[in-house]
Amino acid sequence: MQEVFQLLFTALQISAVYILFSLGLTLIFGVLKVVNFAHGQLFTFGALVLSLTMGALAPSLGHGWAAYLVAGLAGLAACLAVGLVIYQFGFKRLERDMTGSFILSAGLVLLFEGLMLEVFGGAVRPVPALLEGNVQMLGLMVSRQRLVLLVFAVLLTAAILTLLRYTRFGKALRAVAIDYEAAMLQGIAYRRIALYGFLMACALAATAGMLIAPVAAVTPTLGDAYLVKGFIAVVVGGMGSIVGAVAGSLLIALLESFVGFYFDPSIANLAIFVIVMVVLLVKPKGFFGND
């Protein structure tokens, strides 16, 4: 029983990052009808900038919360800037051309990965631990740091979901995702919503990357594994669906922690793939897909 709780906690913790990541993917798909492969690159870029800034700040600020906060803001700003450039010069020009946008994003993956490798090098860039030690909680041993990251991710997810559900902006965003022509007829400024939606997704990717940075090996290929999982989560949940992204992420995290523990991690990856095929056979548009 203890074991199961421990695994459940692990699943929850992995899923928090997946959720942030796949929320971004599903937002971009919903609003722009673009499958953005470069999402993983923004995730990586956020983590790399964080690590770099932390290194630069270490002499003056040390490794404390202040350094983490400043570096986090730097990572966020850098990703938003890159996102803005990609949108303005790329996706905006290919408005709703799915294949074209997809090819563009695939090109961006190669370009960014190559550039990051050139600029940052292939070596692991460690991000210092934010907190040391473990806490005893509900009979579980949990690292303090992972607990803080989890709480932060959950709060952020809750904030995003609230934003999408209750604010004017969120409603406009969802209206565009359901039927952008109808939304435009209702006086919703599609272009602006699309831009903000895209930037929000970039910010989510960057945040997810920076949250995972202290507990992962930060390299220019960090995002690749998350990209595959994130996409699978979105496909299983239904592309463009917010609830679907959350549910899909949870499912994948559960599989990963349980199958990973009882068998081994690569079996878990294969199991995830088999699940996708089964889901597609039963529900071709995913659990919460509508179109």
Binding site: F29, V35, M98, F102, V228, F231, I232, V234, V235, M239, N269, L270, F273, V276, M277, L280, L281, P284, K285, G286
Partner: peptide, 21 residues
Amino acid sequence: GITLKVKGPYFLLIGFAFTEA
């Protein structure tokens, strides 16, 4: 036979996942 029931982004992403699997 399984995946061509779906189209567009779904088909593309399944192919992507299959390659990685």
